[in-house]
Simulated assay, not measured.
Amino acid sequence: MSRLRRIMIIGGAGSGKSTLSQQVGVALNLPVYHMDREVFWLPGWVERSKDDQLQQVERIVALDAWVFEGNNSSTFHLRRVRADMLIWLDVPVWQRIIRVVRRGLRYRGRTRPDMAEGCTERLRMLPGFLWFIVSTARDSRRKQLDFFNRFELCKLRLPGRRATNNFLETLT
């Protein structure tokens, strides 16, 4: 695994992308980049322009080493070009919902480590985000599956915590 220098992690909201990316980054001594923090959001829940998002992705992808997590499918092709490995967290929707609720409660009023400064968790935003997860789950998973099947390099599908833990054990 030490030859891996650029790892792309995808999966739906609440699948564990941020947590896994941190763990992989530590295990392989690679810098970690979060789509929500470095690409999508500016402080205070202000969305970057599409052009700026694209520039940020291109900047990160051009680096020599990274673990880059995020499910922005419009940038899959940019990250794929340089990725040595793709990890897909294919976690069931019900489990993702539970994780998002727990995360919202844990970070209520604070900014998560994988988010831009000033993007604090607000419980009033939770119902809308949960609806987003449920309403986009089928289409999002279809895009991820299609991308995963077309990815020709090293790839790994992790359907849950046990598979993820087994993978992490191979890194240590």
Rank of each mutant, 00 (worst) to 15 (best):
M35P: 00
P113L: 08
T111H: 05
N165I: 01
L168E: 13
L4S: 04
S140K: 15
N72T: 12
P92S: 02
V24F: 05
E117M: 10
G11R: 08
M8A: 09
V67Y: 04
N29C: 10
G70V: 11
N71V: 14
G12C: 12
G16A: 02
R138Y: 14
E152K: 11
T75L: 01
I98Y: 08
V101Y: 10
L42N: 12
K143L: 15
Q22E: 14
V46G: 02
D36T: 12
R112G: 08
L78A: 04
G70K: 12
R3D: 07
L171G: 02
W41M: 09
M8H: 14
N165T: 01
L20V: 05
D84M: 07
G160Q: 04
S73L: 01
L156M: 12
D139Y: 03
E47C: 08
R138K: 15
L168R: 03
T170N: 05
E152V: 08
I7P: 00
D90K: 14
V81C: 01
S18F: 10
D114G: 06
T120Q: 11
R157V: 02
V93P: 00
E121L: 06
R142G: 00
P92H: 08
N149T: 03
L123P: 04
L105H: 05
T111L: 04
D146K: 05
P159Q: 10
H34I: 04
T170E: 08
F68D: 02
N72I: 06
W94Y: 13
F167D: 01
D90Y: 06
R6S: 01
L20W: 02
L126E: 03
L156R: 11
D84L: 06
L4E: 07
V32D: 06
F132V: 02
D146P: 00
F147A: 09
F129Q: 07
